[in-house]
Design a protein around this nucleic acid. Sequence first.
DNA 1: TTGCATAGTGTACACGTTTACATTATGGGA
DNA 2: TCCCATAATGTAAACGTGTACACTATGCAA
Lengths: 328, 328
Amino acid sequence: MAKPPTIRDVARLSGVSTATVSRFFTGKTSAIAPETIENVRSAAEELGYTPSEIGRSLRLASSRVVVMLVPDATNLFTADVAASVENALKGIGLSLVLANTAENAEKQDGLLADAQGLRARAIVLQGAMDTPRLREMAERQNNLIFVNRRPAPGIVAPYVGVDNFAGGFAVGRYFIEHGYENCVAIHGPRHYPGSSRRLEGFLAGVGEMRQVLRFECAFTMAAGYQQGSLLLADRSRRYAVFCANDMIAYGVYRAAMERNMRIPEDLIIFGFDDNRVNEWLAPWLTTVKVPAFDFGPAIAELINEAPATNDHNRTVILPFSLTIRQSA
Amino acid sequence: MAKPPTIRDVARLSGVSTATVSRFFTGKTSAIAPETIENVRSAAEELGYTPSEIGRSLRLASSRVVVMLVPDATNLFTADVAASVENALKGIGLSLVLANTAENAEKQDGLLADAQGLRARAIVLQGAMDTPRLREMAERQNNLIFVNRRPAPGIVAPYVGVDNFAGGFAVGRYFIEHGYENCVAIHGPRHYPGSSRRLEGFLAGVGEMRQVLRFECAFTMAAGYQQGSLLLADRSRRYAVFCANDMIAYGVYRAAMERNMRIPEDLIIFGFDDNRVNEWLAPWLTTVKVPAFDFGPAIAELINEAPATNDHNRTVILPFSLTIRQSA
DNA sequence: TTGCATAGTGTACACGTTTACATTATGGGA
DNA sequence: TCCCATAATGTAAACGTGTACACTATGCAA
């Protein structure tokens, strides 16, 4: 693999200085003679020249890369958010580096270091874990953006997400209004603010009158299956289950299917996120719809306007709605 | 945001030269006095220094970024492959930039230019489209890797994927062996080699005896729904449908559900890929299982051994199997 | 003619690294 | 004592780009 041509090669071939070639590729064409423009263009094409983003980044002390850290890239909701972010960033000339923290604090910190090494334009954290390194970075620079899980109290930084409390509350109210008995919450890990807010909202929505069975659970199908199996061991009741996200709900569903239970006759399942496949594969799932594809534009705008504003605490709250399906 | 400390700042604070600091961060610690190591380490920590990957890339004329181009990031199989690749690359110190071509040749070429600008260590193309630019790049450099869709005949480059023909063939045989009548193939776009190989394999598996109804269809749920609705307008027969991938199968499923059809009594659906959610949400779907999470390691190895070998035409064929579910 | 504005282009430096090579200090063998 | 190997460190030159500044040529007004 021959090494790629540089701006100097193009300059030489087109008989101008590197400054002029640079001007051409940075769009300052109004200051170049039309004839020269054509020379440069054809020389570049002949050589197959593409400006080095590395050289450019070094010179400008800023890259065009945005790093996004997610807890679980195989979560369907996360994948859609990532696709949305990638698309929105492309619109403003940025690239997305996707990385998986696997809900592991050490990995997160390592990836934060990597992102810093890349001199990322912005670092988007979905489901951030509160670590000293994270706090330090939030203080030192202002290019952190939090998604869906609010940073710990001490950290101020832009945030994009839904009102988790209100979402949970809406489900709780729905349960009450429809007279569901035997309410169950399979909530996410309690130490994650977003997760506990959903639970708190749900409990508030249900109110004091009804008791709520609670299970704690990772945000995965396998974990949901496990908790669901535990719950459904007792088949004497018709439970109404609120799952902290749809992945958990899928797990509960499988546990129910294995027991030949019908939905909603024998069991009611609610979720959170409303993954895109629900419309096709999960007609039994009523769930809080979060507009996954609105995250990208919101994040892109936060990144774009960042230089202009000094407000490090901007917040975008996206609207949610309840998607009622035949489970209800 | 104060600009980040450089290697010079660390050198100054620890009272050594930049060379020594560099040696520390590139792991050449055996050539440094233990006391000096400690000085550098603490100075770097105090300043919060992280080596600039940009400066490093410039110096070494090679970045640690791998760009992966996918036709549709919201395809569940694609998302799992991407997660797998990201994870495997992390293991060898590389980052993944994910980008979406949306099956659009112009976008693909633009993204190829971006990848070249980033001086990507490797460019992974899932579902590549045959364009002049792609051919040119394949000739000029040898860092292209193709996934799941073989490059056009003229292009030699490493490839990772399954034997699409054999996969389709296995389904065709299964149809015959189980005596399915009214065979249907909803195949992917005919101009994609991977897609047409699946179809050819299926037709070969079914053999001459049975006629096969064919529909051409994009690899999406919506497209599958559309074709499925067309097909199921005629309810007089019990069709056995082979879909070119699972997303299409989901669409057909929805069309069937809207008509209150039962599977497998009224309709048989086969897919391709075996997305992870199938196990949880699609017990009705029998499908060719492709090991999504084996792609990452295979690709990482191809990238890693690339410098060592001159064989630009290495090929990794991953095994598939038929996952039989209650549809069959 | 001179003076001056302007269009077009070039020169040269900085950005943050890595590393070949040079340099110094130290210790051991002759 | 001198020589040399070795350990530890420093010097300096790239890598590819953008841009401030300098410079030349041209046209126009006075």
